Amino acid sequence: MNGREPMAEVRVTVASKVGLHARPAALVAKTAAAQRVPVTIAKAGAEPVPAGSVLSLLTLGARHGDEVVIAADGDGAKDAVEAVAALVTTELDG
């Protein structure tokens, strides 16, 4: 064992009514970018994109009710994934 945390991954459903667009995308990107490890997000069957990039989140096209996979690798991966997942599963439109 090399002392590194294993990769962390979680599947969650997008809660915001506008999906990961506009304000929700900005909030998710800010949180993802603040993590100690890079965080990715992907829709089922699609390539993961950097969760810390608003543009990447907008092009992902994740809508309300879509399932996405949030993943990170390295020290702090579990905490990073949980922080981003908490936002994705919260109604952020208000």
Rank of each mutant, 00 (worst) to 15 (best):
M1W: 13
M1N: 12
N2T: 13
G3M: 15
G3H: 14
R4N: 10
R4D: 06
R4Q: 12
E5A: 12
E5R: 07
P6L: 14
P6S: 14
M7N: 05
A8M: 02
A8N: 03
E9L: 06
V10I: 15
V10G: 07
R11L: 03
T13G: 09
V14N: 07
V14Y: 08
A15M: 10
A15H: 09
A15G: 04
K17F: 08
K17N: 07
K17S: 09
V18L: 14
G19C: 09
G19W: 05
G19V: 06
G19Q: 11
G19S: 11
L20R: 10
H21D: 02
H21M: 08
R23F: 01
A25D: 04
A25L: 07
A25C: 06
A25H: 06
A26P: 00
A26L: 11
A26K: 11
L27N: 03
L27T: 01
L27Q: 12
V28Y: 07
K30A: 15
K30C: 05
T31V: 13
A32E: 00
A32W: 02
A32G: 03
A33Q: 03
A33D: 00
A33C: 05
A34L: 09
Q35E: 06
R36M: 10
P38C: 10
V39D: 10
T40M: 13
T40E: 14
T40L: 13
T40K: 14
A42R: 03
A44V: 08
A46S: 14
E47D: 15
P48A: 13
V49P: 01
V49I: 13
P50R: 13
P50E: 10
P50Q: 12
P50N: 12
A51T: 04
A51N: 06
S53E: 03
V54P: 03
L55R: 13
S56E: 02
L57Q: 00
L58C: 07
L60S: 05
L60G: 04
A62F: 03
A62S: 06
R63I: 01
H64C: 13
H64G: 05
H64M: 11
H64D: 12
E67P: 00
V68N: 01
V68S: 00
V68Q: 02
V69L: 15
V69P: 01
A72E: 03
A72G: 06
G74Q: 10
D75R: 02
D75M: 04
D75C: 07
G76H: 10
G76C: 12
A77C: 07
K78W: 05
K78C: 05
K78H: 12
K78T: 08
D79G: 11
D79H: 07
A80Y: 02
A80F: 02
V81E: 08
E82C: 01
V84C: 01
A85M: 12
A86R: 14
L87Q: 04
L87Y: 06
V88R: 12
V88P: 09
V88G: 02
T90N: 02
L92P: 01
L92F: 09
D93H: 11
G94W: 04
